[in-house]
Protein backbone atom coordinates (compact mmCIF):
# COMPACT_ATOMS: atom_id res chain seq x y z
CA UNK A 1 0.00 0.00 0.00
CA UNK A 2 1.54 3.25 -1.08
CA UNK A 3 0.04 6.02 0.94
CA UNK A 4 2.69 8.72 0.93
CA UNK A 5 0.24 10.78 -1.11
CA UNK A 6 -2.71 10.17 1.19
CA UNK A 7 -4.87 12.09 1.81
CA UNK A 8 -3.67 14.04 -1.26
CA UNK A 9 -2.61 17.63 -1.55
CA UNK A 10 -6.17 18.91 -1.58
CA UNK A 11 -7.17 17.65 1.83
CA UNK A 12 -4.87 19.78 3.97
CA UNK A 13 -5.54 20.26 7.64
CA UNK A 14 -6.99 23.76 7.23
CA UNK A 15 -9.46 22.41 4.70
CA UNK A 16 -10.52 19.47 6.83
CA UNK A 17 -10.93 21.58 9.97
CA UNK A 18 -13.19 23.97 8.19
CA UNK A 19 -15.18 21.10 6.68
CA UNK A 20 -15.80 19.65 10.12
CA UNK A 21 -17.09 22.97 11.46
CA UNK A 22 -17.83 25.32 8.59
CA UNK A 23 -18.40 29.01 9.18
CA UNK A 24 -21.40 30.98 7.94
CA UNK A 25 -23.45 27.84 7.56
CA UNK A 26 -27.20 28.13 8.14
CA UNK A 27 -30.35 30.04 7.29
CA UNK A 28 -30.44 33.78 6.80
CA UNK A 29 -34.07 34.78 7.27
CA UNK A 30 -33.70 38.42 6.23
CA UNK A 31 -31.71 37.66 3.05
CA UNK A 32 -32.36 40.12 0.23
CA UNK A 33 -30.68 37.92 -2.39
CA UNK A 34 -30.46 34.16 -2.64
CA UNK A 35 -29.61 31.58 -5.27
CA UNK A 36 -29.22 27.80 -5.34
CA UNK A 37 -26.58 26.37 -7.61
CA UNK A 38 -26.42 22.64 -8.37
CA UNK A 39 -23.59 20.59 -9.75
CA UNK A 40 -25.23 18.23 -12.20
CA UNK A 41 -22.35 15.79 -12.10
CA UNK A 42 -22.71 14.95 -8.42
CA UNK A 43 -25.95 16.46 -7.18
CA UNK A 44 -24.26 18.96 -4.85
CA UNK A 45 -26.51 21.83 -3.98
CA UNK A 46 -25.35 25.07 -2.42
CA UNK A 47 -27.65 27.98 -1.60
CA UNK A 48 -26.07 31.36 -0.97
CA UNK A 49 -28.08 33.90 1.01
CA UNK A 50 -27.01 37.52 1.11
CA UNK A 51 -28.17 40.67 2.84
CA UNK A 52 -27.30 43.58 0.58
CA UNK A 53 -27.43 47.05 2.06
CA UNK A 54 -26.26 50.26 0.38
CA UNK A 55 -24.28 48.47 -2.32
CA UNK A 56 -22.48 46.33 0.24
CA UNK A 57 -22.86 42.71 1.30
CA UNK A 58 -23.79 43.11 4.94
CA UNK A 59 -24.29 39.46 5.79
CA UNK A 60 -23.85 36.03 4.16
CA UNK A 61 -24.79 32.48 4.99
CA UNK A 62 -24.84 29.32 2.92
CA UNK A 63 -26.74 26.11 3.23
CA UNK A 64 -27.01 22.90 1.25
CA UNK A 65 -25.07 19.72 0.92
CA UNK A 66 -21.86 18.94 -0.83
CA UNK A 67 -18.44 17.43 -0.79
CA UNK A 68 -15.51 18.71 1.25
CA UNK A 69 -14.42 20.96 -1.58
CA UNK A 70 -17.75 22.66 -2.19
CA UNK A 71 -18.55 23.10 1.51
CA UNK A 72 -15.14 24.55 2.35
CA UNK A 73 -15.23 26.83 -0.64
CA UNK A 74 -18.72 28.04 0.36
CA UNK A 75 -17.59 28.70 3.89
CA UNK A 76 -14.47 30.62 2.87
CA UNK A 77 -16.22 32.55 0.16
CA UNK A 78 -18.92 33.63 2.59
CA UNK A 79 -16.31 35.04 4.95
CA UNK A 80 -14.46 36.67 2.07
CA UNK A 81 -17.42 38.58 0.68
CA UNK A 82 -18.91 39.67 3.98
CA UNK A 83 -18.53 43.45 3.96
CA UNK A 84 -17.48 43.50 0.31
CA UNK A 85 -18.95 45.90 -2.24
CA UNK A 86 -21.43 44.17 -4.54
CA UNK A 87 -19.48 45.40 -7.55
CA UNK A 88 -16.30 43.78 -6.28
CA UNK A 89 -18.02 40.51 -5.42
CA UNK A 90 -19.36 40.32 -8.95
CA UNK A 91 -15.80 40.50 -10.29
CA UNK A 92 -14.50 37.46 -8.39
CA UNK A 93 -13.07 34.76 -10.65
CA UNK A 94 -12.20 31.07 -10.54
CA UNK A 95 -8.60 32.03 -9.90
CA UNK A 96 -9.64 34.08 -6.87
CA UNK A 97 -11.38 31.02 -5.47
CA UNK A 98 -8.36 28.79 -5.94
CA UNK A 99 -6.10 31.42 -4.36
CA UNK A 100 -8.50 31.72 -1.46
CA UNK A 101 -8.42 27.95 -0.82
CA UNK A 102 -4.60 27.84 -0.76
CA UNK A 103 -4.47 24.35 -2.29
CA UNK A 104 -3.90 22.84 -5.71
CA UNK A 105 -7.34 21.83 -6.88
CA UNK A 106 -7.36 18.82 -9.20
CA UNK A 107 -8.88 19.54 -12.61
CA UNK A 108 -11.75 17.17 -11.89
CA UNK A 109 -12.73 19.08 -8.76
CA UNK A 110 -12.75 22.67 -10.07
CA UNK A 111 -16.49 22.34 -10.59
CA UNK A 112 -16.92 21.64 -6.87
CA UNK A 113 -15.03 24.70 -5.65
CA UNK A 114 -16.65 27.20 -8.02
CA UNK A 115 -20.18 26.11 -7.14
CA UNK A 116 -20.64 28.80 -4.43
CA UNK A 117 -19.07 31.43 -6.68
CA UNK A 118 -21.76 30.90 -9.28
CA UNK A 119 -24.40 30.87 -6.57
CA UNK A 120 -23.18 34.32 -5.41
CA UNK A 121 -22.96 35.68 -8.95
CA UNK A 122 -26.43 34.48 -9.82
CA UNK A 123 -27.84 35.76 -6.55
CA UNK A 124 -26.48 39.21 -7.35
CA UNK A 125 -27.78 39.26 -10.91
Amino acid sequence: MTDENFPSEMYREHILELYKSPENCGELKNATHRHTETNASCGDEITMQLVVNGGKIADVKFCGSGCVMSVVSSSMLSSKIKGMKVEDAKKLSREDIIKMLKINVNAGRIKCVVLPLYAVKNALK
Binding site: M1, T2, D3, N5, F6, P7, S8, M10, Y11, C42, D44, G66, C67, V68, M69, N106, G108, R109, C112
Partner: peptide
Amino acid sequence: IHPHDAASLFDSFG
Protein backbone atom coordinates in the same frame (compact mmCIF):
# COMPACT_ATOMS: atom_id res chain seq x y z
CA ILE B 1 -18.03 10.89 2.95
CA HIS B 2 -19.13 12.45 -0.29
CA PRO B 3 -18.48 10.16 -3.30
CA HIS B 4 -16.36 12.85 -4.98
CA ASP B 5 -14.14 13.19 -1.95
CA ALA B 6 -13.88 9.43 -1.76
CA ALA B 7 -12.76 9.24 -5.40
CA SER B 8 -10.11 11.93 -4.85
CA LEU B 9 -8.90 10.09 -1.76
CA PHE B 10 -8.79 6.70 -3.52
CA ASP B 11 -6.79 8.43 -6.23
CA SER B 12 -4.16 9.38 -3.69
CA PHE B 13 -3.62 5.62 -3.27
CA GLY B 14 -3.43 5.09 -7.03
